[in-house]
Simulated assay, not measured.
Amino acid sequence: MDWTNFITADKDVLAGKPRIKGTRLSVELIVGRLADGWSEAEVLENYPSLTKKSLQAAHAYTYELMNTNAVYTAPHSKPI
Rank of each mutant, 00 (worst) to 15 (best):
M1C: 03
D2A: 09
N5L: 11
N5M: 07
F6E: 10
F6Q: 12
F6L: 07
F6D: 05
T8M: 09
T8N: 08
A9F: 13
A9D: 10
A9Y: 10
A9R: 14
K11Y: 09
L14I: 12
L14R: 00
L14P: 00
K17G: 02
K17F: 13
P18I: 07
P18T: 05
I20G: 00
K21H: 03
G22K: 08
G22N: 09
R24S: 12
R24G: 05
L25R: 03
S26I: 09
E28A: 15
I30G: 02
V31I: 12
G32A: 06
R33L: 15
A35I: 09
W38R: 08
S39M: 07
S39Y: 03
E40C: 07
E42G: 11
V43Y: 00
V43N: 01
L44V: 04
E45I: 01
N46S: 14
N46Y: 01
N46I: 01
T51W: 03
T51H: 03
T51N: 02
K53W: 05
S54H: 03
A58Q: 02
A58E: 01
A58F: 01
Y61E: 02
T62F: 05
Y63K: 13
Y63N: 12
E64W: 11
L65F: 08
M66K: 06
N67H: 13
T68Y: 14
A70W: 08
A70H: 07
V71D: 03
V71S: 06
Y72P: 00
T73P: 00
A74N: 03
P75N: 10
H76V: 15
H76L: 15
K78T: 15
